[in-house]
Simulated assay, not measured.
Amino acid sequence: MPSESRPHAGARQPDDGRLPVADRLDDDHFPAYTMGRAAALVGVTPAFLRGLGGTGLIAPTRSDGGHRRYSRHQLKLAARVRELVDRGTPVDAACRIVGLEERLKQVERDYEELRRQSERAAHRHQHQ
């Protein structure tokens, strides 16, 4: 684990109110991976990841030095695109498919939350 991920004694805590890096590593959206590490984990070239950034599917965070940083969630999206490309799907089509899959998952989460809210409201109304 990089030294910046594990604060040493006397290390400064972030001034922006966020948790220290080591405490955010369980967050799927925390940009923990460098371009090289991300590419190695997904099994693609850095150029492939840059290309995904160009499609808008993945927008890596930039470090203070301007280097791309990727989250686990972004790596999962990249891996899904690679899977589709390996099956013969053109990259642009694979990115559209993955983007639509993500939108569908979000709609399903939103629907489930609205359903729960509706059930709670109905329950409260019955007990008034």
Rank of each mutant, 00 (worst) to 15 (best):
I97W: 08
D15W: 12
G51C: 00
V42C: 06
Y70A: 04
R6A: 09
E119M: 09
L49D: 04
K76N: 10
L57H: 03
L77E: 00
G17V: 09
T45N: 01
A32L: 14
A122I: 04
E112N: 01
R62M: 09
P46I: 08
D27Y: 08
D64K: 12
R96H: 02
H73L: 05
A93I: 08
D16F: 11
R68E: 11
T61H: 14
R6T: 13
G99C: 07
R82V: 00
A121H: 05
R109H: 11
L75A: 06
G51K: 13
A59P: 00
I97T: 14
T45R: 10
L77M: 09
Q126W: 12
L104W: 01
G56I: 07
G66I: 07
A79I: 05
L75H: 06
H67K: 09
F48C: 00
G36M: 04
M35V: 06
A9K: 08
R96P: 04
R68W: 08
L57G: 09
R69I: 04
D16P: 05
V98E: 04
L49G: 07
K76D: 12
D28Y: 03
R103N: 11
D110L: 11
R18L: 11
T61S: 12
Q117C: 11
V42E: 01
R24T: 06
V21H: 12
V98P: 06
V85H: 05
L41Q: 13
S118H: 13
Q13N: 03
R124V: 09
F48S: 01
P60T: 00
G99L: 08
A79V: 04
V42R: 01
E113N: 07
H123L: 13
V91Q: 14
V81T: 07
K76T: 13
T45K: 07
L75W: 05
A93L: 13
L57D: 07
R68Q: 10
P46L: 00
L19K: 15
R24I: 08
T45V: 05
P31K: 13
D27N: 15
L77G: 07
D28P: 15
A59M: 05
S63K: 01
G53K: 02
Q128L: 11
E112I: 04
A79S: 15
F30H: 09
D23H: 02
R18K: 07
H123M: 13
F30W: 12
S71P: 01
Q126Y: 06
D64E: 14
A122W: 02
A94H: 04
A39C: 04
D110Y: 05
R50F: 07
A11W: 02
V42D: 06
S63Q: 05
R69T: 03
V44N: 06
L57R: 09
L52D: 02
E112M: 00
G10I: 13
P7T: 06
L41W: 02
E101R: 04
A78F: 08
V21R: 14
H8R: 15
H8M: 12
D28R: 10
P14Q: 09
G51V: 00
D26L: 11
I58Y: 02
L57K: 05
D64I: 08
P90A: 15
